[in-house]
Design a protein around this nucleic acid. Structure first.
Length: 216
DNA sequence: ACCCAGGTGGCCC
DNA sequence: GGGCCACATGGG
């Protein structure tokens, strides 16, 4: 039977092993407080669904090249095929273009921009994000934590793998795990970001050593 | 020529 | 409520 304390101990172990993470989400983006960065993170959160960072990066570079790394600009697009072609490297281009547009239109039209949206409380924002087509719990929490700066813990495949490996949970449902982490920790954005980053660093490390071991 | 990557929604039972 | 499937591209 795992306890709340096990989660905090896990955090301390990861912190001791890897040191404080220098960069948050995503890897190629340090925590800058600019609106542009937050918008890029939100766009990346949608593009990265079931997709490698490298491919998301290619798509973001395409958007930047045509000066479209902006929620307001994307929300004004008439031609989703154009958007779809730009984000093609990130995979599922048709569906992701639609999802991205839906999100951008919501932020721009309903909230008059990301800065206003940030003023809304966490629970209301989360409900609104989840009501959008194409935004599920992980994408919603990623946007909340990294773009809107709210203490909303993100659960992903790395988190599940680590919990299974450590024997800390057998219930792998999103809501259950999110509650488990949030009840074990104080609601602090910085802590949630660091912890999530450490879980990924740990997960990627495990993977490369696994690949090394099984090769040849 | 496989296999995988930080999900989500639609459909079916 | 759960199980299965489509959605697509770049890299190992």
């Amino acid at each position: 039977m795992s306890t709340k304390n096990d989660i905090f101990k896990l955090y301390l172990r990861l912190l001791r092993k890897h040191g404080p993470p220098q960069k948050y989400w995503p890897q190629w983006c340090a925590t800058k407080k600019s609106l542009k960065t937050r918008e890029m993170i939100a766009i990346g959160a949608i593009l990265t669904q079931r997709t490698s960072w490298h491919n998301v990066d290619l798509a973001l570079k395409n958007l930047k090249r045509v000066n479209l790394l902006s929620l307001g600009k994307i929300s004004k697009l008439k031609d989703l095929d154009y958007l779809s072609n730009l984000i093609k490297p990130a995979g599922f281009p048709k569906i992701k273009a639609k999802r991205l547009f839906t999100f951008c239109a919501f932020v721009t039209e309903k909230h008059r921009g990301l800065e206003n949206f940030m003023k809304e409380d966490l629970e209301t924002s989360r409900r609104e994000l989840l009501s959008l087509n194409g935004i599920g719990p992980e994408t919603a929490d990623t946007i909340l934590l990294y773009a809107l700066e709210k203490p909303s813990f993100v659960i992903d495949e790395y988190t599940r793998r680590l919990l299974v490996k450590k024997g800390l949970s057998t219930n792998l449902k999103y809501r259950h795990l999110k509650d488990f982490f949030e009840k074990s920790l104080p609601p602090a954005m910085g802590l949630y970001r660091d912890f999530h980053a450490l879980i990924i660093i740990e997960g990627k490390g495990e993977k490369s050593s696994f690949m090394k071991k099984t090769r040849g």
